[in-house]
């Protein structure tokens, strides 16, 4: 469904190869100071990243901070253009699609969402209908039905008329996922969806994602620091280190103690856990 071929990316610092010296910014993204210093040193945020996401799969992006996970997701969603290489969605290069066309096929769930104004939960979910409406078109009954269905699918129906800002972190994340579902795109990109949540909410979101994948066949690419979440949820993983692919493949093959050590410098036990029903990673300490 989604293919990334030899994707390279740099923030315009250092010698860039490939067709674009400065990558074109589609959305308005300003790198943080921290990112700029990181990138000034390494020049390339991503180098030769190639992988494929099949329909109905959940693929995990793993790697330490600054390894390029978020940048890769931005490139996959078309917000950033790669300096070289190509991202194709069902065979069409992502850069050739308009903002709206892209949004009808790919939905993005950011790590955190803050509403500046007093939008209701339903307002937030209805925003997912934006790419399906004309410039001056108002949401109709059909859009409202789709939004309500998305609320039901994420278990947030009860919050419908509450103010988004008053929800807890986990509830907000479920509503944002509902908004992404209302976008009715077959591919969901999630950037560390559980990073700011407590353990209970982490499991709740993981269960929700698994359920959406099983019942609706939603394809997902999930970046995360939570190796156990990735093990539970993802059929395949891509391990990124300093913008390069360290390992990729099925979760069983790629998520090994050796790779965890190479990625994070952490000595860990990785093994199949009977009660959990998937691989689990137990970090022991820093490896020497």
């Amino acid at each position: 469904m989604l293919r990334a071929d030899n994707v390279c990316f740099a923030y315009g610092k250092g010698p860039a190869i490939g067709p674009a010296k400065r990558p074109a910014k589609v959305g308005h993204y300003v790198p943080t100071d921290n990112e700029l210093t990181n990138y000034a040193r390494t020049d390339f945020v991503l180098t030769d990243v190639t992988f494929e996401v099949g329909r109905g799969q959940i693929v995990g992006l793993l790697g330490p901070n600054g390894s390029g996970k978020t940048t890769l997701l931005r490139i996959l969603s078309g917000i950033l253009r790669p300096a070289s290489g190509r991202v194709a969605l069902n065979g069409t290069e992502v850069g050739r699609l308009s903002h709206r066309e892209l949004a009808r096929q790919i939905a993005v769930v950011p790590q955190e969402t803050h509403a500046t104004f007093d939008f209701s939960v339903l307002d937030i979910v209805l925003m997912g209908r934006y790419p399906h409406l004309g410039a001056f078109e108002l949401e109709g009954i059909a859009d409202l039905e789709i939004a309500r269905e998305a609320l039901a699918a994420t278990g947030t129906t009860a919050f419908e008329s509450r103010q988004f800002a008053t929800l807890s972190g986990g509830e907000k994340q479920r509503v944002v996922i509902a908004s992404a579902l209302a976008q009715a795109s077959a591919l969901l990109l999630l950037d560390e969806p559980t990073a700011s949540l407590d353990l209970g909410y982490q499991f709740e979101i993981a269960a929700l994602l698994g359920r959406l994948n099983r019942t609706r066949g939603t394809t997902m690419v999930v970046s995360t620091h939570d190796l156990n979440l990735a093990a539970a949820l993802c059929s395949e993983v891509v391990l990124l280190k300093q913008g390069r692919v360290l390992a990729q493949g099925s979760t069983e093959e790629a998520l090994t103690a050796a790779n965890v050590r190479a990625l994070y410098g952490i000595d860990a036990d990785v093994g199949f856990h009977k009660r959990a029903g998937h691989l689990t990673v137990v970090p022991i300490g820093r490896s020497l």
Binding site: G27, H28, Y29, T113, H114, A115, M127, Y130, A135
Partner: peptide
């Protein structure tokens, strides 16, 4: 006149607005 809906989405986050099909640079 061209802005209201784009402003709704941008006020929630410019990056998620871009991901929902708003031409953020132009709207800004």
């Amino acid at each position: 006149v061209t802005l209201p809906r784009a402003l709704d989405l941008i006020s929630v986050g410019s990056e998620s607005a871009a991901a929902r099909g708003v031409n953020v640079t132009q709207s800004e």
